[in-house]
């Protein structure tokens, strides 16, 4: 019974009639996101930053050429990152690597799948490529995460095949107010539909522009059928803890880490605050002496065209 070596090539036998492995299934895509729960996913623009993120305990990194704060500052069209740059980050760390494709940009997503990224963010932070349609994510083996500002948008993305949802927030501002708004909207809409009699869900589905079947599932379970992370404007350990307290399964931190004074310490502090989001003493401890947070932007001062959260349909 006991194997001295588990390596291939000895006398072990496998059933010859076993079916081939099924890749890219709903369970495998959604399950990958389940493994990230309670964790922090960090935006990185270099292999060195990726290693700092991994050392700090990030569950994954988002590889991109410019963090959202720089996309705001630089203007112009923001696109998928150079595959070479994404690959250099994949080579630098052993944790999962995500990358962003433009909304509706099927070809960018295919490129990212071809180079083997672990998750694609169809992201409003990049300049949208399609003003009417998102990517048909069921057609891909690689899983997708999409942003949502409310329950209707979340369910539309899930119906297109998104295996993970994140609140949108207002990326690159260092201001958590929009992430809070979106998380509260999604959670309170779920709570509301969970309390409704079945016959009322038809009209709610119509009002939310959400598929009725998915809405019924959400009402029955009291949560989305996929993992719900938060993103957009998270800059401090307390921000991360706040979002976890509001019901997020985990946290994306974009510009907040590498636009701050001491990225390694801040990254580690945000990881610990996410795990111990209900322990103010610990959050106080890890928040001490972190150096400067990113400066931040008041969202009221942004023009409508500068707001990312309104992108996505």
């Amino acid at each position: 019974m006991t194997e001295r070596t588990a390596a291939a090539g000895d006398d072990m036998t496998l059933p010859t009639d076993s079916p081939p492995p099924a890749r890219g299934t709903e369970r495998v895509k959604r399950g990958m996101a389940e493994m990230l729960k309670g964790g922090v996913i960090m935006d990185v623009v270099t292999a060195e930053q990726a290693r700092i993120a991994e050392d700090a305990g990030a569950v994954a990194v988002m590889a991109l050429e410019r963090v959202p704060a720089d996309i705001r500052a630089n203007g112009g069209v923001a696109r998928m990152s150079d595959p070479e740059m994404v690959e250099s980050i994949m080579a630098a760390v052993s944790i999962p690597v995500m990358a962003k494709a433009r909304i509706g940009h099927i070809a960018e997503a295919e490129v990212l799948q071809a180079i083997g990224v672990d998750y694609i963010d169809e992201s409003e932070v990049l300049t949208p490529a399609d003003e009417a349609h998102h990517i048909d994510k069921w057609a891909f083996t690689v899983p997708f995460v999409n942003g949502a500002t409310g329950l209707g948008e979340a369910l539309r993305r899930i119906s297109e095949g998104a295996a993970m949802i994140r609140s949108k927030g207002e990326a690159g501002t260092g201001n958590v107010v929009e992430a809070v708004r979106h998380m509260r909207a999604i959670r309170s809409e779920i709570a509301r539909v969970s309390a409704l009699p079945p016959e009322e869900l038809f009209a709610v589905a119509k009002a939310l522009q959400a598929p009725h079947g998915l809405l019924v599932e959400v009402a029955a379970r009291g949560r989305l059928p996929v993992v719900l992370f938060t993103a957009g404007g998270i800059a401090t350990p307390a921000d991360a803890a706040l979002m976890m307290r509001l019901g997020a399964d985990g946290v994306f931190v974009g510009s907040g880490i590498f636009k701050s004074g001491d990225p390694a310490r801040r990254a580690s502090a945000i990881v610990q605050a996410t795990v111990h989001h209900d322990s103010p003493d610990l959050i106080a401890k890890v928040s001490r002496g972190l150096g400067e947070a990113m400066v931040g932007i008041n969202i009221d001062t942004l023009g409508q065209s500068e707001r990312f959260a309104g992108r996505g349909w």
């Binding site: 588990a6 059933p15 081939p20 099924a22 890749r23 495998v28 990958m32 083997g116 083996t141």
Partner: peptide, 30 residues
């Protein structure tokens, strides 16, 4: 990596004759 993650039935003698639904996500092996 994730694109190679898969599901397949796994024969596990101690669990009986019915194969177990194996879900392998960026999975390790021994």
């Amino acid at each position: 990596r994730q694109v190679a993650s898969f599901e397949r039935p796994v024969d596990i003698a101690v669990l009986g004759p019915v194969a177990f639904p194996g879900v392998f996500i960026r999975a390790p092996w021994l």
